[in-house]
Amino acid sequence: MAILEVKGIKKSFDSTEVLKGIDFSVEKGEVVAIIGSSGSGKTTLLRCLNFLEFADEGTITVNGDVLYDGAAETLAKKKLRNNEKLLRKRRLHFGLVFQNFNLFPHKSVIANLTLAPILQFKSDVKAAKKAEAEAKRALKKATDPEEIARIKAELAAKAAHEYSSVEEIRAKALETLDRVGLLEKKDNYPCELSGGQQQRVAIARALVMNPDILCFDEPTSALDPELTGEVLKVIRELKDSDTTMIVVTHEMEFARDVADKVIYMANGVIEEEGTPAEVFGAPKSEKTKAFLSSRQNNG
């Protein structure tokens, strides 16, 4: 079963239709590269997956669970976007690395990584305590053994956290920083790092949340050419450890080497899709051919 299945995603801003029905799927551990000229809707697609935008139509399914259904969302009067808890839970299936990093400038590198998981852990603990108190009260009243078993099971489910302590979160953050080669920068502030280092911190920050699918929006576009290599290297290493990724990129060589699947987008539709050999080696669509040759001419 595909880890991610996207069906019929449509999105308009005012009267312009930016996504005109996007269908694709991603297998676990697969790297999908999305290429296409600017304005073709690549960023908008990633933003719909991360619920920074809400698609007008279409479904997003992860591990068989329908996370988003545009029609239902419209019918239910924006149910999901107004339900903060549910939205947060669904959103965390995805991670997003931005073009311009968006690190928190007032937090040290390590604090950038731990901020979200620690806040989440603390609110989970609070919620678990409340649930426990409630369950205890319910257990006192309950006599039916089935009822008692159900309450206990519910409680156990609620007590299961992603992390079990703040120390564990810190350890995981340090380990992740080490993975992107920046352990020695843990106490520095983002402004003290190069662009390439900042982007690697941003990748580490997304990884600490353990997303099912990690999305990148042109992760090297804001970098000086000599700094792109270190970021691409990190992404390559993530592929080796079976991280499922969707990478919007202008680095054709990188897409060819690393991607299992390449998607070429034009004007809000998937114009062509296939293995790198198929798309780069023998493109079927004229548009794809034109795009690829314009890319080659530009170097």
């Binding site: 991360n50 920074l52 959103r91 931005f98 968006n102 901020l115 979200a116 989440q120 997304a206 949340m209």
Partner: peptide
């Protein structure tokens, strides 16, 4: 404060009030 800060916090699962007070 750039919109990107808000979006980065959202993507990491921070609630609106957490985003305001911590970011």
């Amino acid at each position: 404060v750039s919109k990107g800060q808000n979006e980065a916090a959202q993507v990491l699962g921070l609630t609106k009030s957490q985003t305001f007070f911590h970011v």
